[in-house]
Simulated scan of single mutants.
Amino acid sequence: MDRRIRLLTAGVLLVGTLGLCVHYGATHEAGWPYPTGEQLATDYASHVGERALVFGEVRSVNEKGVVVRVLHSPGEFTTDLVVVSEEAEVLAEVGPGGAVQIYGTLEPDRRMDAEAVVVERDRGETLYTLVASLAGIAVAVVSTTRHWRVNARELRIEAR
């Protein structure tokens, strides 16, 4: 295949991929099936009874439930949800300051019946994930370069 055709094909694919990334970023929130944090902050009452996925930080644990400060991508807003259900026990174990994701049904008086709770990882787990990923990439690169080589002059990959 001609070198110019390969370069043109690579350029078209890269521009197409970049265009898809921009499109996703521009339309992501419109396709989100749950009320956003901003919607909950401005008009919570209209979303009562709906299922929601919220991201937040455990503020406090008391006899009524677990108070979670809901976070939103442009920043934090001042709405706290009281989470009630068996999942509240998981949140109580996390303790104040813990980062969580909560899926459940919104109830009146800024309460949420949680169906699932995900506790976000701490820094040690994130570091482990990063190191394991880099090790996996290194193994893949070494394994690939043992059997293949890049011919930069002709812009192709050849068997050794």
Rank of each mutant, 00 (worst) to 15 (best):
A116S: 13
H47A: 01
V100E: 00
V54I: 12
N62C: 02
A45F: 13
G104T: 04
V48E: 10
A116K: 11
P96Q: 09
R51P: 08
G75Y: 04
E120C: 12
L106F: 07
G95H: 02
G75A: 08
A92V: 07
S46F: 07
V48D: 11
G98N: 04
D80T: 05
E93R: 13
V66S: 05
E89L: 14
F55W: 08
E50K: 13
L40V: 04
V100W: 00
S60V: 08
E50M: 10
H47S: 06
D113M: 05
V68T: 03
V118P: 09
A88K: 01
T42Y: 15
E93C: 08
D122N: 03
A52F: 05
E63S: 15
R123S: 14
L53C: 11
R110M: 12
H72T: 03
E89A: 14
S46D: 10
V94G: 12
G95I: 01
K64S: 14
P108H: 08
D43T: 11
S73D: 15
A88T: 02
Y44R: 03
A92T: 10
G37F: 01
V90W: 06
F55K: 06
V83K: 13
E63K: 14
V119Q: 00
V54M: 05
G65F: 08
S73K: 15
I102L: 07
R110K: 15
N62K: 11
A52W: 03
A99V: 06
F77M: 09
V48W: 05
T78E: 06
V48R: 09
E76M: 06
R111M: 15
V100P: 00
V117D: 00
Q101C: 07
D109G: 13
V67F: 06
V118L: 12
E115R: 10
L91I: 04
T105Q: 15
